[in-house]
Design a protein around this nucleic acid. Structure first.
Length: 644
RNA sequence: GCCGAUGUAGCUCAGUGGUAGAGUACUUCCUUGGUAAGGAAGGGGUCACGGGUUCAAGUCCCGUCAUUGGCUCCA
């Protein structure tokens, strides 16, 4: 083979020869004109490249278009550059932070200096972006030296880019230029601006430079773009649909919970229907926990300040908690409990423990109060008062892995039963850059993190690792689930803790008749009932399975003549603990059915002359329609089968 | 806490300086009905709150509170 020939391997395994310096675009052209026309970027030996970048060695090449995730990312990243160009022309002298692609769209962080800026400027910017897009300007990759890069941005007067360049290695610095705009950028980019056919700026937010609260807050502009108008339209439609699944909206519509400014922000009020839902979830988990060897306990909502000094929570959060409640006259200080573990430690301590007693699993639906920052409150997903399905397992070192595995099984069981299939088990570990944030010795941390990772792997969980997400006393395994808008929330959590047992001087007598320190596992499958219900509502759009529905059966008499018969049926259902109500309103059947459908009642029973004569009911399932007629006994059997 | 947006009837929302509206829900009446909206009438408002500008403010300006999209935080 000739030395300036390359072997290019395509995704289907075919190998083609090209001259050295061939570009992905040329490779695409050799495959088909259509592919070439739609090429945005390419995988070259696993990294994403510009399609106009010459290839210098044998490579695996995959052409990427809008249909590919990496293609979309490049497309959006390129749009961010285009927006920056538009902004620079409209607001001279602005400084640029970073402008990456995100899961849906892109953003750019801007220091507007003396320019005032708000969302009313969006249309003007969108117009300018489209104007620039129509120029079909090429995105050009330029390799520059560190000095040249610094000089460029010194001249331009952009301190943010200079800071970024400082951290880069000479020889690996690239600029990208399109039209009159040049940016420090690793790339890659789409070939030219003409691909961008539709843009929408979505919102504006303050964002601290490099995510640090102590730094200056820049203006972050979020947007999204598409290769055609239709896709933008359908994306905006999708957003609207997601809004309809918003748990606060559903909570209002289905009368599950509410908030009152008079009671206080972030303090949910559970309405009767919402309470039924909560209680069903609690009952479900209680049963599962009895089988798994947990012992329920109950502890007070407040505790003496000293308890939290011992646990370390006071030191860590004291200033940022609800401030203490004081006893009259004497002035003793009590805190609303922000977590249950210290109380449970005291339960563990109330009598001497033997190695034979362990593991001890103390469970409590414990309501806790945390002073969450004002801007953090978010419906039921982030409140200042919530109930954890909490439990603490006190065990010996040799029991840790088994206990941890059992907890994972329980969490998986709970998630499966409630239909959460798409979750990530996040290994929430220390941030090695911020070790001062954590208590205890680092050997214990190493041990704990290794144990969690090993157990999670053995259990075959779909894991991801995030540094800096650990609790201050130990690493966590967090079960993350997305809401309707794609935001990730921590639901279930399992935490391994070597610190609290030491701080509380917990002990058990070992086989050797000596004192040993137990290990603690904190765990909550739902996490918080409030948040869990929030996400459950967003996933189901309020259409809960029958066993969780606050109202399971709506009895719909065709006219008031059948009210008495409806009452008989209702009584029979109630005798079987089936939750039902009769729609006695003076409305036609179509209206009653519609209202029951909208309020997501799983079963509708239509009763009229025919049913009364035959001692039957006509059954309709929510979202499914007419199911035919059943005798009461058959119906009860059917429903009981569905809800147990 | 910070940067934006929003706040009008129980709910969803219209109302660009000149007499507070619609749909729905609610009450009453007519209708007694067959699987996603039968008809009519009626009640319901300190236009979030507090200031200001103006002959006149739901509307313009300032502040506060709340909600919301983000940032930071999250035991």
């Amino acid at each position: 083979m000739h030395h300036n020939q390359l072997n290019i391997t395509l995704p289907d395994g075919t190998v083609k020869q090209f001259a050295k310096g061939v570009t992905s675009l040329e490779i695409a052209q050799s495959i088909s004109e259509g592919l070439a026309k739609h090429s945005l970027v390419a995988f070259v030996n696993g990294s994403v490249w510009d399609i106009t970048r010459p290839i210098g060695e044998d490579a695996m090449v995959q052409i990427l278009t809008w249909k590919d995730e990496a293609g979309k990312k490049a497309f959006w990243h390129s749009t961010a550059h285009l927006m920056a160009e538009a902004l620079e022309s409209l607001y001279p002298g602005i400084k640029l932070g970073i402008g990456p692609a995100i899961a849906s769209g892109f953003y750019y962080d801007i220091d507007f200096g003396s320019h005032s800026f708000d969302a009313s400027h969006f249309p003007r910017i969108e117009e300018k972006i489209m104007e620039l897009a129509h120029q079909n300007n090429l995105y050009q990759r330029l390799v520059v030296t560190k000095d040249a890069a610094k000089n460029f941005f010194k001249k331009k007067g952009d301190p943010y880019k200079l800071e970024l360049i400082e951290e880069l290695e000479d020889g690996h610095i690239t600029f990208y230029k399109q039209g009159n705009f040049t940016d420090l950028c690793r790339g890659p980019h789409i070939p030219h601006t003409g691909f961008i056919k539709a843009i929408k700026l979505l919102n504006i937010a303050g964002a601290y430079w490099r995510g640090n609260e102590k730094n200056k807050q820049l203006t972050r502009i979020y947007g999204i773009s598409f290769p055609d108008q239709k896709e933008l339209k359908s994306y905006l439609h999708l957003l609207e649909e997601a809004q309809k699944r918003n748990h606060q909206r559903i909570g209002k519509e289905l009368k599950l919970f509410t908030f009152s400014e008079k009671v206080g922000i972030g303090l949910p009020l559970w309405l009767p229907r919402g309470t039924l839902l909560r209680e069903q979830l609690e009952r479900f988990l209680r049963q599962a926990q009895v089988k798994a060897g947990y012992q329920p306990v109950v502890t007070p909502h407040i505790a003496h300040k000293q308890l939290y000094i011992t646990s370390g929570h006071y030191d860590k959060y004291g200033e940022d908690s609800f401030q203490p409640i004081r006893t009259p006259h004497v002035g003793e200080e009590f805190f609303l409990k922000p977590m249950n573990c210290p109380h449970h430690c005291e339960i563990y301590k109330h009598e001497p423990r033997s190695y034979r007693d362990l593991p001890i699993r103390l469970a409590e639906f414990g309501t806790v109060y945390r002073y969450e920052q004002h801007g953090e409150l978010h419906g039921l997903a982030r409140t200042r008062c919530f109930t954890q399905d909490d439990a603490h397992i006190f065990c010996r070192n040799d029991q840790v892995k088994e206990e941890f595995s059992k907890v994972i099984n329980l969490v998986s069981y709970v998630f499966n039963a409630l239909g959460f299939k798409d979750y990530t088990a996040q290994l929430s570990f220390r941030d090695p850059q911020q070790l001062h944030k954590y208590i205890g010795n680092m050997e214990d941390w190493d041990k704990a993190e290794a144990a969690i990772e090993e157990v999670a792997k053995t259990q075959g969980l779909n894991t991801s690792k995030v540094l800096g997400e650990a609790a201050f006393y130990g690493p966590k395994l967090d079960f993350m689930v997305k809401d309707a808008l794609g935001r990730s929330w921590q639901l279930g959590t399992v935490q391994l803790d070597y610190q609290l047992p030491v701080r509380f001087e917990l002990a058990y007598t070992g086989e050797d008749n000596k004192k040993h320190t137990p290990v603690m596992i904190h765990r909550a499958p739902f996490g918080s009932l409030e948040r869990f219900i929030a996400i459950l509502l967003e996933h189901t759009a309020g259409k809960l399975p029958a066993w969780l529905s606050p109202e399971q059966v709506a009895i719909l008499p065709i006219s008031e003549k059948y009210a008495a018969y409806a009452e008989q049926i209702a009584q029979k259902l109630r005798d079987k603990e089936i939750r039902c109500f009769i729609d006695h309103r003076d409305e036609k059947m179509g209206k009653k059915v519609r209202d029951a459908e909208i309020t997501k009642i799983p079963y509708m029973l239509i009763v009229g002359e025919k049913e009364q004569l035959e001692a039957k009911v006509s059954v309709r399932r929510q979202g499914e329609g007419d199911q035919g007629s059943f005798t009461i006994d058959n119906l009860i059997q059917k429903i009981v089968g569905d809800i147990s």
